Simulated assay, not measured.
Amino acid sequence: MRVVLVFLLLCPSVIFATTERLPDISPKLAIKSIHITTGVWPGFTEPNQQGAYFELIKLLFPDDTRLEVTYTGFNRTVKMVEEQQADMVLGVGLNESEQLYLSAKPFDIDQIAVLFKPERLRFEKPADLAGYQLVTQRGYNYEIVLGITTQSYEVDSITTGVNLVRTGRVDAFLVEKTELEGKHNVSQLEDMQLVFLAGEPIYIGFVKNERGAALKIWWDQQFQQHYQSGQLQTLYQQHAGMTLLPF
C-alpha cells in the first residue's frame, strides 16, 4: 500500500517501527472521539464500522470511545492525517510519511501479489517484472517495494486492474492479495494466475501533534497488553486474512 522503505517478508518476523521521542502522557485516555481515515477493504474496513480492523480498534480503545470514520482513497487517507484533518490512518508503510507517528508494532502484513495471464508473463523473481507493462493500485507503489524500476500505471479500483489484465491491455497487475480475493472469487479469475510475491508490514499512522502522541502511546500500550494476555491472538485467529507478528 506507496512510496516506502520496507522489509520484504517471506515469513513472519519481528518488526520494530522507527519512532521518535514523544512527550510523557498519562496512561488514562482522555480523548473520547477519534477520527479515523481508511479505504474500504472487504472484510477489514466495511462501511458502518464493520470488519476485522474495526474489531481490533474497538478491542484496544475504551468502550465509550466514539469513532468517526472517513472512507476514501489511500492517498487521501494519509494526506488528511498529515494535514491534521483526522487522528488516525490505517495501513501505513514503515517509512510512508515523516509527518505521522507510527504504531510501535505493525498490526498486519500486506500480501503483495501479481495477477497475470500465464501465456504473457514469465518471471523467477519480482525484479524480473521490470520488463513488463504493469498496473498497480493507486498510491500503493508496490513496484518500488519490490525493487522494480520501471513505472507502472495506477488504477483506482481492483476491478479495473483485473479487466486490464484480462483484455490484454497490460501484462500484469500488482495487487494486495486479500483485497483482490475480497472483490473477486476464484471462478472470476480462472483465466488468470495469482502469485504471492512478498509481505509488507503495515502500521497505524497517528496525527503528529499532542493528540496523536496520546493516541499512539495508548495504542502501543494496549497492543502489547492484549498480546501478553492472549486476546490479540484470539482476535487474529478469527480472521484468516490478518497476520499478527510476534513480539
Rank of each mutant, 00 (worst) to 15 (best):
R211I: 07
V207Y: 00
K125Y: 10
N141M: 10
T149I: 07
T178G: 00
A127T: 15
L102F: 10
T65G: 05
Q228Y: 05
L235S: 03
K177R: 15
T19M: 04
T38A: 05
V3A: 01
D64A: 02
I144E: 04
Y53I: 14
S33H: 11
Q188V: 00
P42V: 10
T65S: 08
K125S: 13
N209E: 06
G212P: 00
E119Q: 14
R120S: 06
V155F: 08
N95K: 10
E20K: 12
I217Q: 15
I112G: 04
L100D: 04
Y132I: 13
S157Y: 09
L232V: 12
I25F: 09
Q84L: 12
D128W: 06
T150P: 02
D87Y: 01
R120D: 10
L10A: 06
E55T: 09
N48S: 13
F206K: 02
L245E: 08
K208Y: 03
Q99D: 13
S13H: 06
S13K: 12
V175A: 03
N141W: 14
G212C: 01
Q225I: 07
Q151P: 09
I144D: 03
V155D: 01
K117A: 04
L146N: 07
E143A: 03
S187Q: 15
L232D: 02
N163R: 15
V186N: 05
A86W: 00
A213P: 00
A213L: 06
I109T: 07
H35K: 07
Q111S: 12
A30M: 10
M80E: 10
S152P: 06
A86E: 01
Q188F: 03
N75F: 00
L67C: 04
L197H: 01
P47Y: 06
L146Y: 10
Q151W: 12
N95F: 11
D63R: 14
G93T: 07
D110S: 08
G51A: 02
L232Y: 03
F54L: 13
G241C: 05
W41T: 13
F54K: 09
V69A: 08
Q84D: 06
I148R: 06
G131R: 07
V89K: 00
L129C: 03
